[in-house]
Design a protein around this nucleic acid. Structure first.
Length: 400
DNA sequence: TCTGGGGTCCTAGGACCC
DNA sequence: TCTGGGGTCCTAGGACCC
């Protein structure tokens, strides 16, 4: 039986969601109809465009570019800050609505998902009407628009939803691949990014069709094990199933770009305290213990370094993660100016199996866990901002 | 172009063991 | 002190996605 898969993608998600939220709060204008973006301040180094309105797109403004560049394209562009709490709420509202139609949904990101239609298709007239039904329901109930792509697998559905925007439904069935997908530039193919498309171009492979017909042995020489997958994708072949996502993260991390590059160890360690605190807190919220910790840094010249370590005992304790992060940092750091630092935890387990080392007593561990728990409880009551950094945590401990 | 922050997955090379 | 070859596991870095 031939599969039918939908890919549902919110149009200009962050911008649409901010617009809906503003209207809900009584704002009279709809920023989707203006030249507007979601992003940081133009003078800040974090001032990049996270989302843009359709009028902004028409001015040539692109996601990912700096606010400075956006202002060059239209000096009157309006910029609004992102609000991730709002986005989280809008996202879960949307998924709740979608689950009414099918349980076979795989979240691909905060604003995108795949829906396996194959198993519910007997309930509906046809897949096109089904897509229209969903699209209209989202528009009417939630106030924003989506693009929906329909195909015989995830890859084609995803490619289809990208065809033209906003508020569109497109199909890319197996018998449409040659006409609709092969003429596209090879960089449009999912998983073919900048570096790969550059290499492909050197081999005179410029369109998806070129890749589909390319010599497999030649591809293999340059792309090793990726070669056959690339060529399969170009032919619209994809056996990846839609798997219900129970939000099983493989890693949880935080990183931040400094306002200006620094080699001030004090400042760097303070930043690690802040990042670690947020990461550990999230682990505890999800009742996870990490067996791996890694840190990464980016130099002024955009060279990245990372260092990771496995722990003997899984942990979600702020102090333990921080100490490891600092040690890892010192092992890689050579003293140059740093642009960004980050901490990531991975390899999770659900329960604690702590083997005592000779240096620590049972009491010590208990105390650490109590401190973490207290902080989490205060945050639970008063919100995350009430205790903002691990420095506070240290003071608290000293008082005891 | 002067480049955020959250992730996932792959690969080459080194360590270690037999 | 020089030396093979295979297997496994780990890590750093890179490519990709939104």
């Amino acid at each position: 039986m031939e599969r039918l898969v939908l890919h549902i993608d919110v149009n200009n998600a962050f911008l649409s969601w901010t617009a809906v939220d503003m209207i809900k709060k009584g704002y009279k204008k709809d920023i989707r109809e203006e030249v507007s973006v979601i992003g940081g301040h133009a003078h800040s180094r974090r001032g990049v465009v996270l989302a843009k309105s359709t009028p902004a797109k028409k001015k040539g403004i692109k996601t990912g570019e700096t606010m400075y560049q956006a202002l060059l394209k239209d000096k009157n562009v309006k910029s609004y800050p992102p609000n991730f709490d709002v986005y989280q709420k809008m996202s879960s509202d949307m998924f709740e609505l979608l689950y009414k139609y099918s349980p076979d949904i795989e979240k691909f990101s905060i604003d995108e998902c795949f829906l396996e239609f194959t198993n519910v298709k007997y309930l509906y007239k046809n897949v096109n009407d089904f897509a229209k039904l969903i699209s209209n329901d989202i528009k009417k109930t939630l106030g924003f628009t989506v693009n929906i792509g329909i195909g015989n697998n995830k890859l084609c559905a995803k490619m289809a939803s990208n065809f033209s925007k906003p508020d569109k439904i497109h199909t890319l069935f197996n018998d449409e691949i040659q006409n609709k997908m092969w003429p596209l530039d090879v960089s449009e193919l999912l998983w073919i990014g900048k570096k790969t498309s550059l290499k492909l171009r050197e081999l005179n492979i410029n369109t998806i069709g070129d890749l589909a017909k390319a010599d497999e042995a030649l591809l293999r020489r340059f792309f090793k094990n990726q070669a056959s997958k690339m060529r399969m994708h170009a032919n619209g072949i994809d056996y990846d199933p839609v798997v219900e996502s129970v939000s099983k993260n493989a890693s949880i991390g935080k990183s931040i770009t400094f306002m200006e590059d620094t080699n001030d160890l004090n400042k760097i360690f303070k930043t690690f305290e802040m990042l670690t605190d947020q990461v550990a807190s999230k682990l505890r919220k999800e009742k996870k213990y990490a067996c791996g910790i890694s840190i990464n840094l980016k130099s002024s010249y955009f060279k990245t370094y990372s260092k990771q370590r496995k722990l003997k005992n899984p942990t979600n304790n702020t102090k333990v993660i921080l100490e490891n992060a600092k040690e890892l940092f010192e092992e890689v750091y050579s003293g140059e100016d740093v642009r960004l630092v980050g901490v990531t935890t991975y390899n999770f387990v659900d329960s604690l199996t702590h083997q005592l080392s000779i240096f620590e007593s049972e009491d010590n561990i208990k105390e650490e866990l109590t401190i973490d728990k207290t902080i989490d409880e205060i945050r639970g009551k008063f919100g995350d901002t009430i205790i903002s950094s691990a420095s506070v945590y240290k003071n608290k401990k000293e008082k005891k």
